[in-house]
């Protein structure tokens, strides 16, 4: 066998192996997606949206409490994370630029983005739950908000930097003060990008369970009291899934399906916003 023949055979082996690994990876992924869709769809019914949690065995059992709780938590987290993230991103792109401080902030925030979210939960437990003496929606929202800041910060920084400098100069040349230039010209130019960042940020924290376990904790009943434990889809899903009751497990799958669709929807929406603004 010549050297070239050997190489051709080695090439074929490697290409086969790599195709095989793609098939294996896709196989697992579709298995999981398949389970999620089948289990979720079969558990889905109107009761889920009408009733709140009930002890196992009750027919009138649903996820209304968790859906509303999840919405409240995400809304509050967004209210905390988005303004702070956008302002911080604005500082990096418009004021800090290439200064040492700006780079340090970028680096630290990058690390934060990959840091374990359960640690944020422990931190919020120490600084919010312990002083208050009990779990609360506030604590959960703060934990999610902290996780959101670096995501929004990074996209804002990136998106603002894409706005051409000549646009800023043109506005300055008209005598506008810097904050006006940023608000009227830079933000407007980066609108779609920032919006995409926000949507992806919401999608990211929407799937978080760990930081909520001991901040907003959970509740099997409907509540809008922000000073009290607040149910969420993710923690409810976790509690129901590890319970030994089959009807609770069913509800867990329904929650998993609803949440995944919501997050997927946000991801798609985010990409659409960006695509549409680019095609203009």
């Amino acid at each position: 066998m010549t050297a070239t023949q050997k190489r051709v055979i080695a090439n074929r082996i490697v290409l086969t192996l790599s195709t095989l690994s793609a098939v294996i990876a896709l196989g697992f992924l579709f298995w999981i997606l398949g389970v999620l869709v089948m289990k979720g769809l079969s558990a889905l019914n109107w009761n889920i949206f009408i009733f709140e949690g009930a002890p196992p065995g009750y027919a009138e059992s649903g996820l209304r409490h968790a859906l509303v709780g999840q919405a409240i938590l995400i809304a509050m987290a967004t209210a905390i994370g988005v303004p702070l993230g956008i302002l911080a991103g604005t500082y990096l792109s418009e004021y800090g630029k290439n200064s040492k401080l700006a780079h340090t902030i970028r680096d630290i925030s990058d690390i934060m983005m990959s840091a374990p979210s359960i640690v944020i939960g422990a931190f919020v437990y120490a600084v919010v739950v312990m002083p208050m003496g009990h779990f609360s929606a506030w604590a959960g929202a703060i934990a999610l908000g902290i996780i959101m800041i670096p995501i929004i910060l990074r996209t804002t920084d990136d998106m603002l930097q894409l706005v051409p400098g000549t646009l800023r100069e043109a506005a300055f040349a008209l005598g506008a003060p810097k904050y006006k230039v940023i608000m009227d010209v830079v933000y407007r130019g980066a609108k779609a990008g920032i919006l995409t960042g926000i949507l992806l940020g919401i999608a990211r924290v929407g799937g978080e369970t760990a930081p909520l376990l001991f901040t907003s904790f959970n509740d099997n009943f409907f509540t809008t009291n922000l000073n009290d434990a607040m149910p969420s889809l993710t923690v409810t899903m976790f509690n129901y899934a590890i319970s030994p009751y089959e009807d609770w497990q069913q509800l867990g799958w329904a929650a998993a399906f609803i949440l995944s669709m919501f997050i997927l929807g946000l991801n798609i929406l985010g990409r659409l916003v960006l695509l549409m603004s680019r095609s203009k």
């Binding site: 911080a88 500082y91 990096l92 004021y95 340090t104 902030i105 640690v119 800041i149 904050y179 940023i182």
Partner: peptide
């Protein structure tokens, strides 16, 4: 207003460093 806006953005940016440091200190 320029000054206020600048300080708001700067404070938010520094907040990230502060939170990370705070997390370490608290833990």
């Amino acid at each position: 207003i320029d000054k206020i806006f600048f300080n708001m953005t700067r404070t938010s940016a520094l907040l990230i460093l502060f939170i990370v440091a705070w997390i370490f200190v608290v833990l």
